[in-house]
Design a protein around this nucleic acid. Structure first.
Lengths: 115, 115
DNA sequence: TGGTCACATCGATGCTTGTCAATATGGGGT
DNA sequence: ACCCCATATTGACAAGCATCGATGTGACCA
């Protein structure tokens, strides 16, 4: 494996941004977009994201409680959401803080038919 | 099960409709919402929905071609989208026509942070 | 240097799901 | 009645995924 950013794999891909009501998605566009929506298709991740979105900033250690899942499971889900480009991490000392990635949710709203 | 419309299982559930940026989802809300997003988390279904959304109305027989999947697979995916409340069907003669379910996509946009 | 804490990774397991061939259902035409 | 055509359903199989215990990694503190 080549050199990579230290703490996080994070897709910076520019995804399709035209409403599906305007034009059908291409095969490639759907393939790029589906993993993002699939990341939201799990109740634990959906709730995780909503907690981060509502709080503005949440430490991993403050997720185990509300989500009632083991630490590896939480780590797995944050990873999936981060790879989908939906949340971003920042390390402070021993702790990892999560924030919603700017723009990504707005892009989804647009694709789902927003003006 | 009580009386229901003849040809289609269709969740008429009233789903959560407050932006996740305002308040975190409850366990139950996430459990209700996740399947809808999971339905969109497959590239074939995402493209299927976009075709229906862009065309306005599409016959099942006009989906096999663009999606390059077998007939049972198409039937499976339309069923999943219908059960997620995202599309609705109407039978005309031998054909089944699909349309986007009104309101469902708008609800998703709202939950994902829309005003 | 040694210990503790937060988090990531690995390995295993059981469940879910996308896919298609085969078959069933049911409407239309002749 | 019979045969086609469009769609739904069933059964089976391979791949993917959520979950957790065990272990690795790296930061902080004494």
């Amino acid at each position: 494996m080549t050199n990579r950013s230290p703490s996080l794999t994070q897709s910076g891909a520019e995804l399709c941004c035209t409403p599906i009501t305007d034009a059908a998605l291409s095969d490639a566009e759907a393939a790029d977009l589906a993993p993002v929506l699939a990341a939201l298709g799990d109740p634990v991740r959906l709730r995780l994201l909503s907690i981060v979105a509502a709080e503005g900033e949440v430490c991993s250690c403050n997720l185990e409680g509300p989500l009632a899942k083991s630490q590896p499971t939480i780590s797995h889900h944050t990873r999936v959401l981060a790879e989908a480009g939906l949340i971003v991490s920042e390390k402070r000392g021993k702790w990892t803080w999560w924030r919603v990635a700017p723009g990504r949710l707005a892009m989804l709203r647009t694709v789902l038919g927003g003006s």
